[in-house]
Design a protein around this nucleic acid. Sequence first.
DNA 1: TATAGGCACTGACGTAAGGTGAGAGTCAAG
DNA 2: CTTGACTCTCACCTTACGTCAGTGCCTATA
Lengths: 256, 256
Amino acid sequence: MKQYSVQQLATLADVSVRTLHVYDEMGLLKPATRTEARYRLYGEKELLRLQQILFYKELDFPLQEIGALLDDPDFDLVEALQRHKTALKARQERLATLMHTIDKTISHLQEGEFQMKPEELYEGLPKEFATTYREEAHKNWGDAVKRSEEALRKLSKADFGALKVEMQANWKRLAALMHDDPTSEAVQTHIAHHYVIIRKFWGTDTLPDKQAKQYAGLGQLYTDDPRYTQLDGKPSPEFAAFLSKAMSYFTETALA
Amino acid sequence: MKQYSVQQLATLADVSVRTLHVYDEMGLLKPATRTEARYRLYGEKELLRLQQILFYKELDFPLQEIGALLDDPDFDLVEALQRHKTALKARQERLATLMHTIDKTISHLQEGEFQMKPEELYEGLPKEFATTYREEAHKNWGDAVKRSEEALRKLSKADFGALKVEMQANWKRLAALMHDDPTSEAVQTHIAHHYVIIRKFWGTDTLPDKQAKQYAGLGQLYTDDPRYTQLDGKPSPEFAAFLSKAMSYFTETALA
DNA sequence: TATAGGCACTGACGTAAGGTGAGAGTCAAG
DNA sequence: CTTGACTCTCACCTTACGTCAGTGCCTATA
């Protein structure tokens, strides 16, 4: 019967010696015997078990569960796999979202001038919302919107993207503030912050009166419209998404 | 200027108080001031910064990098995002593979009898290999293969799946052993293990002479064919995949 | 046979991002 | 004045190991 030292077994299975120590320590994989000098010696059976361990490890099982799984013949493997798959699917979807966000962020940060297509101005926004609030914007603030869209198309990709990044960092905050108290001073403060950001990007210290009013009205729009505050007062995911986009949109509008 | 206690800020941003403690400790987010009793007090600016932190955290940036990113205006954000996306993509692909594996494992473990379609016997195997080695099998071991395929189709999904699971746990081991020394006794021992597994699943203690020879020849096939040992002696990924499937296939063949 | 080099052992500390208390101090309300 | 809610700092726990440090064992060569 062949015997393996820690090193040999480690090399064979492409794990570290330390890993074997750990597995021994936690009882997941004990050596077949120990020499007088307490050197670990593994046999064929241990090699086989290690392979099984690694198999389940590739499936991202925590070592504890692998131990239970290998030692308990009644372990419900199918159920465990089922649960595991659900978890993996969630992670995967999260990753997809993250990558999409990164893609957009990167592309917005890329240098160079460019002409934005009209749809891009509303990209990511649920279609129903896009139409609806564009109408509302037109209704409430007239052709200032039209002019703002024109101006927007002339921005550099970098400037526009940078603005969006700031916006995205901000929207959550506003949602939180408004959840607390939609009429609070904090909301006004937040709007003031936007004002600061705008200044930062366009180097102008003065904001036309009309647009100041737009900002003020913005808060009203959010709080008056019951459509955006479903779910017992808490902002719904849809509202959060809408809010995010709306923030960008109105900020952009203010550039006209 | 509004002030927030740890609790208030934590609730507002939906993080734990401990999280704020940690961020303070590591200098990522310091409170604006401390009261005489060393209570942390955060202001608007900190709220804003926290939102930015959370934004980048959602993109899975490590906190250290977030700190650098927020403090150094020259931080190369695009490059960081680029790198990050690559990492995420790798993770995502890994998850996809894992989920596929789990899917197959689950479906093989599902109870109930079923008739396997011929293609399923070679499912997952690169087409070229599938044809090639089926031919080789036929050439070398005649119509034993045909009969084995018949027998295979009558197995319960559970039995077949369970066998495959064991196989998958084993193939890596064989690859390692063969990388070490393809003619070694260890390889023979491994083949013996297969024999044990077969016994376990079909409750028969005797393996016909002919099939014993098949196992012996199996080792030859792997080691003689240069096509499977590219890449300066190390098993290529393709070979690994092939080996996995071949193991299953020949083990199944032995059931005839 | 002395020594040099590998290999092995245990123990301990570090990682990321906090969780979970313990024990003690602080604050506002009844 | 006490109660309860809040806060503070310390410090250990988590996963699955990596990385020493200090020491012991084994074998080959001079």
